[in-house]
């Protein structure tokens, strides 16, 4: 496989970087809670963020299909 271009490698690194938070986190209150609750918070954050995009996107796509 051809080696990735430097730019693409940079983009992949930038995409992965936020998922591995460093230990030197300055916020005193973070990560003291129950990891299960933290996971559910993260999950519902993702669902709630994606839901409006899917709803509006779905409506826009449906209308576009109807009209064309």
């Amino acid at each position: 496989m051809r080696a990735m271009k430097f730019r693409n490698r940079l983009l992949v690194a930038a995409a992965v970087f936020p998922l591995i938070p460093g230990t030197a986190w300055a916020c005193p209150a973070c990560m003291v809670g129950d990891p299960k609750t933290a996971g559910i918070y993260l999950g519902s954050t993702l669902v709630m963020s994606a839901l409006p995009l899917f709803l509006v996107g779905g409506l826009a796509y449906w209308l576009w299909r109807r009209h064309s």
Partner: peptide
């Protein structure tokens, strides 16, 4: 419009949210 739905937790960086979330929302 699309990205603006994915940035709201940046108001809570010091409120005690999951650092993984804070990093994603920073980006």
């Amino acid at each position: 419009v699309i990205i603006s739905f994915l940035v709201w937790a940046h108001h809570q960086f010091v409120a005690g949210i999951d650092p993984r979330m804070a990093n994603i929302f920073s980006v």
